[in-house]
Amino acid sequence: MSAAHGLFVTFEGGEGAGKSTQIRLLADALRARGLTVLMTREPGGSKGAEAVRHVLLSGAAEPYGIRMEAILFAAARSDHVEQVIRPALAAGSVVLCDRFMDSSRVYQGVTGNLEQPFIEALERVAINGVVPDCTIIFDLPASVGLERARKRAGGPGEQPDRFEKEELQTHEKRREAFLDIAAREPLRCRVIDATKAQDTIAAEVLAIVEPLLPVGALSHQEHVS
């Protein structure tokens, strides 16, 4: 486990895969059982990381190149880990995080064409030993995910972010990269068919997480929006 008492679960996948919805459903189910649940996200999740999130998703860092973006993601992750995730795990919370280190491996490493040693070095510094106990990868065709994401972006006040605007081929390459990670790390990663009905997916997620739940988790509720 990532810490002596808590449980760290990360949710990964392409754009429009439904991660945020499933995190909320899982959090509700676990809180109903009296567990302490911390919901969080990347980039973001802590005060410093949320400031960096705007820079990254707005595209403001894009002119400076993919290497700079990767460094900014790592800086945000380091703050998130040390200020939020590690303390929550030490307190016995179940931490549910929308994206984590695997997104950097895929987005900046595979489709950003950054060399693997550079990505691995950034990851080591950023996570500082805090590795997810379980990573759930939501898999669906990139075309389906993009359609969902763009419909969402069509809502009031919503615009496609820096990554949603990219080409279909790039998104499909990311899908394959997430599946490659799952194949290489089967003990940590589980793949779910994200084309299924929302309730079906929620049941599958709970079935994956339930056997991993820490004993004696606290009942105080925490939430990072």
Rank of each mutant, 00 (worst) to 15 (best):
S2G: 09
S2K: 02
G6D: 11
L7N: 09
F11D: 13
K19E: 08
T21P: 02
Q22H: 13
I23T: 08
L25P: 02
D28K: 13
A29S: 08
L30I: 08
L30K: 10
A32R: 15
A32G: 15
A32W: 05
G34S: 04
T36S: 15
T36K: 12
L38D: 00
G44S: 12
G45H: 09
K47R: 14
A49Q: 02
A49C: 04
A49K: 01
V55L: 15
S58V: 04
A61T: 15
I66F: 07
I66V: 15
I66E: 15
A70M: 04
I71S: 14
L72W: 13
A76V: 05
R77V: 02
R77A: 06
S78T: 14
S78K: 15
H80R: 07
H80L: 05
A90R: 14
A91H: 09
V95C: 12
L96E: 11
C97L: 12
R99V: 07
R99Q: 06
V106Q: 11
L114P: 09
P117H: 05
R124H: 07
R124L: 12
R124Y: 03
A126F: 01
V131Q: 11
I136A: 02
I137T: 11
L140G: 08
P141F: 02
P141T: 01
E147Q: 14
A149P: 10
R150A: 09
K151P: 08
K151G: 15
G154V: 00
R162P: 13
R162A: 13
E166Y: 05
T170D: 11
L179G: 06
D180C: 01
I181E: 07
E185T: 11
R188P: 10
R188E: 04
A194V: 06
A197M: 04
A197C: 03
T200D: 13
I201H: 06
A202H: 06
A202E: 09
A203W: 03
A203Y: 07
I208D: 10
P211Q: 09
P211W: 03
L213E: 06
P214F: 08
G216V: 01
S219G: 10
H220F: 08
